[in-house]
Design a protein around this nucleic acid. Structure first.
Lengths: 351, 351
DNA sequence: TTGTATGCGTTATCAC
DNA sequence: GTGATAACGCATACAA
């Protein structure tokens, strides 16, 4: 049983000091080489006699030495080769794909990703950012788009690179990437009009969300711009979250007068699924609809749901690349990248 | 413009040395206090005169100082207060929920989570583990359940705490948490038999996956144990991945002889969706089925899909708690926690 | 080819 | 109360 430089026994992990790893000093002692020589071997530097290197390697293997990257980076003054990602939650398919895309880019560049969920709590988001910067991440991807989180922007130290997803930064100096939310709902409205609908409604979601408000803007502007659409449609807006009751209330109010609503645009996945569920329990209601955000089962539901699809993968990729450009030092003006949406026509548009 | 101790100007981030943060030495200089006094203030240690503390605080605010947690942890010899999570991918709903649950527990305990996806590549998984341990994470959650990843187990240094999700460790000394996969498919078979089916088939998935093999085991044992079931059912097994063609081939072979298959068990979400899609394009085929793993739209598809639901949230929570117990030093024998599955009866069982 | 001494940003010891 | 000084694990001038 070897005794380590820090006084612990190699085979017995100490309880509170997390775990005692062998250090380069231990390797040096075990191999009879000096600290510097060990360092050379570990970092693959030239100028070590093969025999010596061999001895050191053996000691490394025997002790199970692994370099402490934290200490290495501290001494080098180099970056931590890590980024932090704040997302709203993990389980939404959009955020999950986003995180996957970001991590892929990060990994390709040799970076590690720290991740945390804001879960609708601005304070939690702020704590995450603080924890990330305290660990000196090289950059931040902020994908927590609720307006409440905008205080977050001030928590990000000046000079810390950050890219915002689905919402621009309140401070204008940060890059952002988002879907073409307005264009998406505009396309949805156009599609419904093409199908013969002239009286529409908007089934919203969280009104504090920046994306949801952009989608609402798109709906409003498309409705206003088209003289064929009943102007009442501009006011037929029900923000969420929705369940059977809220949808029933909106529906009965929108169909009680003359020129009743015949088609809906839903603002996100949740709203779409709430509507589908509502229609299941009210088979007598016939309505055309287009949902924002695609989902795996959209084509399996009957009628298959026509959607405005976001390219979460592309959004994540672009956001990460933008961040790494910043990290590399590209000092250009803040960019606001808008990723196109795509209307996937299935059957739910006609009623 | 203040000049920092490391020679960079506060307002101009240096290009390659990632970013120059003010250090305690800078704060000390700016406030006229000593390094140790600054440290005391930063850490809330007693024995500082209020006036002095005030002066230091002001300097901290002015410089935008934030303690370098990496350096702090190095000096303290304390843990890094971080865990690493290796998952198969981000976008699968199961892994996404898992990651969310783990991060929630970690955050509650003041830990940060590093995450990376193995994406079917054993080498990538190994590199992730190496990167995590090089940063001295306090523990690992391994949720990469393909059998190919089992080499991974040897990459985890002895003494590094790890909890395996959905697969036990090859080295027996690590905790694991998984669904009751065998019990799940047994319940599925029982359900189908209750509905009157006596000739079954199994639509599998990746045969290298430990979970898929357990589900297959459950199917086989349930079929063998029940004399009411046609023994041919034990061999009616088609491993995946599946598309229309593979399912068509299996189906025609399983229904060509006498006592044709009338019901199927699908091994995971992907297989279930492939079957649903297949049945869409072959409306003449009528078959009962139960899918492993619930999905949001399962109740919206017609017929609504009966599933064996896994409790991903509970699995993640238990795995994380097990890990933190280990980190806290609870030195008990390795535990293998099995989380029950739940049959959610909808309509797809009867044909 | 190899080793010694110093410092990264922080905390701990101990003296003033 | 306060402040020199050493040390955490590692890399780097520079000397041998």
């Amino acid at each position: 049983m070897t005794t380590l430089s820090n006084g612990a026994a190699a085979s017995e992990p100490a309880p509170e000091r997390s775990r005692q790893w062998p250090t380069m000093v231990d390797v040096a002692r075990a191999s009879g080489a000096s600290l510097k020589t060990v360092s050379r071997v570990v970092n693959g530097e030239p100028g070590v006699r093969p025999v010596t290197a061999e001895r050191v390697q053996r000691a490394i293997a025997e002790l199970g030495f692994q370099r402490n990257d934290g200490a290495s980076m501290l001494r080098r003054g180099s970056s931590t080769a890590s980024i932090g990602m704040v997302l709203e939650d993990f389980s939404g398919p959009f955020y999950a794909m986003l995180a996957g895309a970001v991590e892929r880019v990060a990994r390709d560049r040799g970076y590690l990703m720290l991740t945390g969920a804001a879960e609708n709590d601005p304070e939690r988001a702020a704590r995450l950012v603080a924890a990330f910067t305290a660990r000196r991440v090289d950059g931040l991807i902020v994908a927590a788009s609720r307006a409440d989180h905008s205080d977050l922007d001030d928590c990000i130290p000046a000079g810390t690179r950050a890219v915002f997803v689905d919402r621009p930064s309140r401070r204008g100096d940060a890059d952002s990437v988002s879907s073409d939310n307005e264009g998406g709902t505009r396309a949805a409205v156009r599609h419904l009009v093409d199908l013969g609908h002239t009286s529409l409604g908007f089934l919203g979601a969280d009104e504090h969300s920046w994306t949801i408000r952009r989608r609402l803007d798109g709906y409003r502007s498309a409705v206003r711009a088209d003289p064929a659409i009943d102007p009442q449609s501009v006011e037929r807006i029900a923000m969420g979250p929705h369940d059977d009751d809220t949808i029933a209330a909106a529906w009965s109010s929108w169909t009680s007068g003359d020129n009743p609503v015949t088609a809906l645009v839903t603002a996100n996945n949740r709203a779409t699924l709430a509507l589908v569920r509502f229609l299941r329990s009210h088979p007598e209601i016939r309505v055309g609809y287009v949902g924002f955000d695609d989902f795996e089962a959209a084509e399996l539901i009957q009628p298959a749901v026509t959607v405005i699809a976001q390219d979460a993968d592309e959004i994540g990729r672009r956001a990460a690349e933008l961040l790494f450009d910043r990290i590399a030092g590209t000092a250009a003006a803040a960019q606001h990248v808008v990723i196109p949406t795509r209307l996937i026509q299935r059957d739910s548009g006609r009623r």
